[in-house]
Structure formats: structure tokens, C-alpha cells
Simulated scan of single mutants.
Amino acid sequence: MQNSKRALLSLLLCVAVAHIGHAQTDEKAIENQVDKLVSDWNTHSFKNMDTYTTEDVEWVNIVGMWWKGRTEVKSAHQRIFDTIFKGVPFTKKSVKIRSLTPEVAVANLICHVGEFFPPDGVNHGTNRMPEADDLLTLVFVKRNGVWLLSAGQNTVIDSRAANGDSKK
């Protein structure tokens, strides 16, 4: 009886260690995909988007535009990075990944965005958006062993609200 308890305990321990190893491997794979996205923002070219998004990816941008499907998401990103975000630096500050199922995970990315000038990327004297941090929620799905971005949404972090000071 004692040996069977030890065997069961050993088996459970092995399963737990294997699960932790898979979780770490998955998190690293997802973070690599996030890095590809941030790299594309900084190169202002989205030719790599096919390698880290699903065909049916959806994106809600910072001003509430809702893009659907890889072709539209890719084209819309290219358009705004050729204008509004032309030459604007993007810096990944942190990413937190949470597994929902073995095939679905949510990544929360905080990214620092340099100043930019909407709607056309030109400084008209009154259209400057100061540099700020953005919080992105990214949904990843595992397809054929590869983690792919299925949905994304970003929001500017209002430091006054984030600090609980809504009166300033």
C-alpha cells in the first residue's frame, strides 16, 4: 500500500512538472509572437503579420475602429503606420500572459508609444498626442502547435485615472 501511494505521488509530481514546463514553453512562444508585433510597429512594415495572426483576426484600435480579418487588419495597420505613426517609436515595457485553456491565452501588453500627430502624421500645431503608455489585450489561440493572435484591442493609459486622481 505504501509503495502504491509513493508511485501515485511520483506520478502526480511528474504530471505537475510537465504541466509547468508546457506552460513556460507556451508563454515564451506567445511572448515571441508579441515581440514580432512590436517589431512590425517599429519597422512600420506588416509583411510578417501572416506569421503571428489568424486569418480571422480582429483588432479594435485606439479610437474604436474595428478591423476584421487579416487582410483588413494588415492593411489598416500599414495605413496608420504610414501616416499617423510614421517614425513613432514603440517600446514593449511588460507583458503578462494568462492561460485560459491549453489552446487559448490572453496577453496584456504595456507598450510605450512616442508622440504622434493625428489624423495625418503632420504637426498642425494643435494635434499633438503626447507620448504615453498603452495597454493592449491580445487573445492568442494555439493552432497546429503555433500560437497566433486572434484578437487585439488597445487603450491609452490615462496616468491620472490609473493613479486614482480623476480630479486633475
Rank of each mutant, 00 (worst) to 15 (best):
M1T: 10
N3M: 11
S4R: 09
S4C: 08
K5N: 11
R6N: 14
A7W: 12
L8H: 15
L12G: 12
C14A: 15
A16K: 11
V17F: 08
V17E: 04
G21Q: 12
G21C: 11
H22T: 10
H22D: 10
A23D: 04
A23C: 08
D26P: 01
D26L: 02
K28G: 05
K28C: 03
A29P: 00
A29R: 01
N32Y: 06
Q33I: 05
Q33H: 08
V34K: 00
D35R: 09
D35A: 11
S39M: 11
N42L: 01
H44Q: 12
S45H: 10
F46N: 02
K47C: 08
T53V: 06
T54H: 04
T54N: 04
E55T: 10
D56F: 10
W59C: 04
V60Y: 11
I62D: 14
V63R: 12
G64A: 10
M65N: 15
W67L: 07
V73K: 02
I80L: 15
F81W: 13
D82H: 07
F85I: 09
K86A: 14
G87Y: 06
K96E: 14
K96Q: 14
I97H: 04
L100S: 04
T101Q: 07
P102T: 06
A105F: 00
F117N: 05
P119Y: 05
P119T: 10
D120T: 12
D120N: 13
V122L: 06
H124N: 13
T126Y: 15
N127Q: 03
N127D: 04
R128L: 10
M129I: 15
P130R: 07
D134H: 14
L136P: 06
T137P: 06
L138W: 02
V139L: 05
V139K: 01
F140V: 00
V146G: 02
W147D: 02
W147M: 04
L148K: 03
L148D: 00
L149Y: 00
S150H: 13
S150E: 07
S150W: 05
A151V: 06
A151E: 09
A151C: 11
G152K: 01
G152Q: 02
Q153W: 07
S159P: 12
S159A: 15
A161G: 11
A161E: 13
A162C: 09
G164D: 01
G164L: 00
D165G: 07
S166V: 15
K167C: 15
K168W: 15
